[in-house]
Write a protein that binds this DNA or RNA. Structure first.
Length: 223
DNA sequence: AACCAGGAGACAT
DNA sequence: ATGTCTCATGGT
């Protein structure tokens, strides 16, 4: 199997089908960071409501989130689910964000340092960290989510046994060979994968229209 | 009315 | 290192 070629071919097919996705939805890097935490295992629709509540209460900054009553913060986050844990995770993120000196100071850090810093925050795992690195800090980091793993292992392009880091490096390496600017490419690609997961493979029984001729989660194998 | 969504951490094995 | 549980609202 030619992983690099296959990975690039899938991008071309997805892009031809869905077009540019214009990610990440959000008006500022900080709002993107907030969204990355709130969208953990949660539909984006529900995240938008929670963010709207934060906005309505002038709580879309690290300072205002830390200044808010924790119980009240949790209540604003209610629509996005897991509101107690997410309130704690958001506060953890804001503490770190402030302690590091805010966005400009963070933006000056090299990617490996920034990534390690994000991962040191309780509640920021690999996927959330990489969402933030790619979409808020515009670093060339590919985001691996559950659907990406399932999709590409089913296509036979990547081994299902690869762990997060191995799969991330496989993607980054496969895509960098194209000599294209990696950040816009990684940005578009992850967005397209998510779009494909929710638009093409849902409603569930209908995989026939899938542009990759792939299986939905409910189907065993694509053809 | 079960099942799932743009995961991560605590804990046991 | 690898499983299992928990967290929780809203749409299909």
């Amino acid at each position: 199997m030619n992983t690099a070629k296959g990975v690039r071919a899938v991008f071309d097919q997805l892009y031809a089908t869905y077009g540019p996705q214009d990610w990440w939805p959000g008006d500022s890097p900080f709002e993107i960071m907030v969204g990355a935490v709130l969208t953990q295992n949660t539909a984006w629709r529900n995240v938008e409501r929670a963010i709207a509540k934060l906005f309505a209460h002038q709580a879309l900054s690290a300072e205002s989130i830390l200044a808010a009553d924790p119980g009240q913060l949790a209540d604003w986050l209610r629509p996005s689910g897991y509101f107690n844990v997410k309130a704690r995770r958001l506060r953890n993120l804001c503490h770190w964000y402030r302690e590091q000196g805010g966005f400009e100071a963070l933006a000056a850090q090299p990617t490996p340092v920034l990534r390690a810093g994000l991962l040191s925050v309780n509640g920021i795992g690999p996927e959330t960290a990489d969402d933030i690195l790619l979409y808020a800090f515009e670093r060339p980091v590919f985001v691996i989510d559950a659907y990406t793993r399932r999709l590409f292992s089913r296509l036979g392009l990547l081994e299902a046994t690869l762990d997060y880091e191995a799969m991330r490096h496989a993607f980054e390496q496969a895509l960098v060979e194209g000599a294209v600017a990696p950040v816009p490419l990684f940005n578009e690609y992850h967005a397209l994968i998510v779009m494909h997961a929710k638009e093409a493979c849902r409603p569930r029984p209908r995989c026939a229209s899938c542009c990759l001729r792939l299986a939905c989660p409910s189907r065993q194998q694509g053809g």
